[in-house]
């Protein structure tokens, strides 16, 4: 493999890792701050992609799909938190597993009623179509580069909100000690709602962004759910920085695994996870037992 092909694969791996990070960051925030395990996270990723397909098919605009899809998902998150998730904060993880499994079945069927179960594709915005010609035979799609930029911007925004804003301060305080935060009169329960909805919006954003480079199909959420779980296990629950490291590790392992060891590539990430579990059972940046 020459240096240029290697570079392209490296870029693919990083781009995949960044996308994984967006989805896994939503998951790890909901785990870390609300203490809720949400198996339906992948379903919202899938739903985001279908929103992108539906909105862009009707308006012809990918930007409308991006804004509309994220907004709808955020509102959906607020509604679900109010209706169901709120009641589960004090319950055991088993109840959370069952609720989110029930939600997956409901979301899947509602999606089928609204959008059918066909496989779709979404056109990227016109100004991002085309490829950069690297050599005579090698080119790189512009949209994938734009995807990297958007993911990096989103990652920067997540870090900024958590580390530099008042909202982020409440989130960090709540993650550290829920009861103490409440006792001090800080509106942590209100923040909960936005964290949950924000997590869901991140999953949907991942689905929307991926729709122009991958097909939109009903089962796409399941694979993403497992991958984000592995990312969170690698990085440590509740750690956004850990999710970033874990996501890049998975992205690169998967991409180069497919190149060098195509026979066993689907198993490699689990081997990586097993290795991290042996070395650090709480994840690379995980602190305490969940």
């Amino acid at each position: 493999m020459d240096a240029l092909t290697f570079g392209v694969q490296l870029l693919n791996g990083v781009q995949y890792g960044l996308l994984l990070f967006l989805v896994a960051a939503g998951l790890t925030l909901v785990f870390g701050i609300l203490g809720v395990i949400n198996l339906a996270h992948g379903a919202f990723y899938m739903l985001g992609a279908y929103f992108a397909y539906w909105i862009s098919a009707h308006t012809g605009s990918f930007a409308a799909a991006l804004v509309g899809g994220v907004a709808i998902s955020f509102l959906l998150g607020l509604v679900l938190e109010e209706l169901f998730v709120k009641r589960l904060y004090g319950r055991d993880h088993l109840a959370q597993v069952l609720l989110s499994f029930g939600l997956i079945l409901v979301i899947d069927e509602v999606r089928q009623m609204l959008f059918g179960k066909d496989v779709h594709s979404v056109a990227p915005p016109a100004w991002l179509q085309g490829s950069i010609q690297l050599t005579d035979v090698l080119s790189y799609p512009v949209y994938r580069l734009a995807l990297c930029v958007v993911c990096l911007a989103a990652a920067g925004a997540i870090f900024y909100v958590i580390q530099r804003t008042r909202l982020g301060m409440i989130i960090r305080a709540g993650a550290e000690n829920r009861d103490m935060t409440r006792a001090l009169g800080i509106p942590f329960d209100l923040v909960n709602k936005y964290v949950f909805a924000g997590g869901i919006a991140l999953a949907a954003l991942g689905g929307i962004l991926v729709s122009p480079i991958s097909t939109v199909f009903p089962g796409m959420g399941d694979g993403m759910l497992i991958l984000s779980f592995v990312v969170v296990v690698l990085g440590g629950i509740g750690s956004v920085a850990g999710a970033a490291i874990g996501a890049l590790m998975i992205g690169l392992t998967d991409t180069f695994g497919k190149v060098f060891f195509p026979q066993v590539s689907s198993i490699l990430i689990y081997v990586l996870m097993a290795g991290v579990l042996l070395w650090r059972p709480n994840g690379l940046l995980g602190k305490k037992e969940a």
Partner: peptide, 13 residues
Amino acid sequence: RTRGIYFIMVTLA
């Protein structure tokens, strides 16, 4: 080697 939410996620994976 893990507990709680971790155990759920690791067995799932």
